[in-house]
Design a protein around this nucleic acid. Sequence first.
DNA 1: CTGCGTTTGCTAATACCTTTAGGCAATTGC
DNA 2: GCAATTGCCTAAAGGTATTAGCAAACGCAG
Lengths: 193, 193
Amino acid sequence: MARVGLSAERLTLAGAELADEVGFEQVTLSALARQFDVKVASLYSHLKSSHELKTRIALLALEELADRVSEAVAGRAGRDALAAFADAYRDYARRHPGRYDAARFRLDRETAAASAGVRHAQMTRALLRAYDLDEPDETHAVRMLGSVFHGFVSLEAAGGFSHTPVDAQASWEWTLDSLDAVLRARGTGTAAP
Amino acid sequence: MARVGLSAERLTLAGAELADEVGFEQVTLSALARQFDVKVASLYSHLKSSHELKTRIALLALEELADRVSEAVAGRAGRDALAAFADAYRDYARRHPGRYDAARFRLDRETAAASAGVRHAQMTRALLRAYDLDEPDETHAVRMLGSVFHGFVSLEAAGGFSHTPVDAQASWEWTLDSLDAVLRARGTGTAAP
DNA sequence: CTGCGTTTGCTAATACCTTTAGGCAATTGC
DNA sequence: GCAATTGCCTAAAGGTATTAGCAAACGCAG
């Protein structure tokens, strides 16, 4: 019974990689056990359940994503920052589809509150500062940006844009331009009717 | 061995209802068999697989959603139509969360091409006609609208908006106003820089 | 270095869910 | 009314999750 040297961390990382390869849904304790050439039951020494594994992968992904975004946004403001934020987000989703899915895994309230999810919200608010929105408009804008980024990226991942010849990149840029325009209009008080 | 009178249609409908109650992920052939008081293997006379059941539920949801949207939009144009479209979409997702999830089930290319998904695209384009966008802008706009609607609705369903006191409805209206404004700006050629 | 407690992986067992194969009865069509 | 089809059943195999109890490996104290 040579010990393999498992740990929650190693399992989480392996799970994240597996997710990127075969999809978050297919990440299973059995698959992980196979990879480490270990019996499934052995994993329960490190993880309480399959749910805990998924939660940990989700938390990892949220951290990674927040790190990427944070780095991308550093030193930028306004439209530049918006594009950097959005691109970092989209890049991560494209490079790590399984992890991205994991980041959308529904966490319970407390876990979510302790996750890097809060950094995401803070960064979005920091980004919006340049547009000078009053509350509750800033909150509305946080939600709109989140919706667009997540919506676009998830539709793109689902292949929803592959039916038309128009380049997804062009649509992405057009969308970012639109968001920038609308936020500037809102910020200066020259909001649309 | 009294016959129960199953059929792919009845199973699909029951599956859709089950999805709304317990979530699309939890819709299982076993659960359905239990509901109809029938052995699981019997379902294979009507469905090739669990995957087929999910696909059928997805197609049903796409049809229903397209019907709702189509009815809501009828006779409206511009901002009115935009709001009607968006509200119908959001309402459906709130009333039928399981079905809405199902509508996002990844279909293979042919199935998707034969689904009501194409009606969705057509309706979106019809909606945009009032804004008078040239190609490829119209395509960009289709994608942006799809992203916002899906993104908002799915973040809302995931409870992503419950951490802040600001009303989701207000954010929704604010977002629709923003989209209307940006589309009008794009359409008249007075696009933002 | 020896011994003891803890950790870690194992076997065994239970409980679902999916899918296939093969059988018999109810229903349908002629 | 009979034959063919269809619809539901039993049986069985394979995958995943989870729990309980056991034994070897490890790590630290003395």
